[in-house]
Amino acid sequence: MKYLKLIRIQNLLLLAFMQVLFRYTFLKTATFTTLTSTNNFLALSHFQFFLLVLATVCIAAAGYVINDIVDQTTDEIAKKRIVGKTISESTAYNLYVALNLIGVGSGFYISNVIQKPSFAALFIFTAAILYIYATWLKQIAIVGNIVVALVLSFSILILGIFDLVPSTHEGNEIWEGNKVQMRRVFSILTDYAIFAFIINFLRELVKDIEDTDADYASGIATLPVLIGKSRTIKIVFGLSFLPIILLVFYMNNNLANYDYAVYYFLLFIIAPLLFFTIKSWSAKTQKDFTNLSLLLKIILFFGILSIAVITYSIPNA
Rank of each mutant, 00 (worst) to 15 (best):
Y260D: 13
G84L: 02
S45Q: 04
I7P: 03
V165M: 12
F41I: 10
R81I: 10
I129F: 09
E173C: 00
N253R: 14
L15I: 05
N253V: 00
F154H: 07
T212D: 02
N39A: 13
F108N: 01
H169L: 13
S111G: 06
Y93M: 06
L295C: 06
L122V: 11
V180R: 11
I124N: 02
V113L: 13
L295K: 06
V180I: 14
N252C: 03
K297F: 07
K79D: 10
D288L: 04
K5I: 00
T73W: 00
A149R: 02
L150C: 12
N11W: 06
T168R: 10
S306L: 10
K207S: 06
V225A: 05
T73Q: 09
I174L: 15
N291Q: 12
F186A: 01
N40W: 10
Y192Q: 01
C58S: 15
F302H: 08
E89F: 08
V248W: 11
L164Q: 10
F108T: 12
Y216T: 13
F22A: 07
I102A: 15
A141M: 08
F26W: 03
V57P: 03
N200P: 01
L267W: 14
F119K: 01
L95W: 12
L292V: 09
I299K: 05
I244K: 02
T56M: 03
L305G: 12
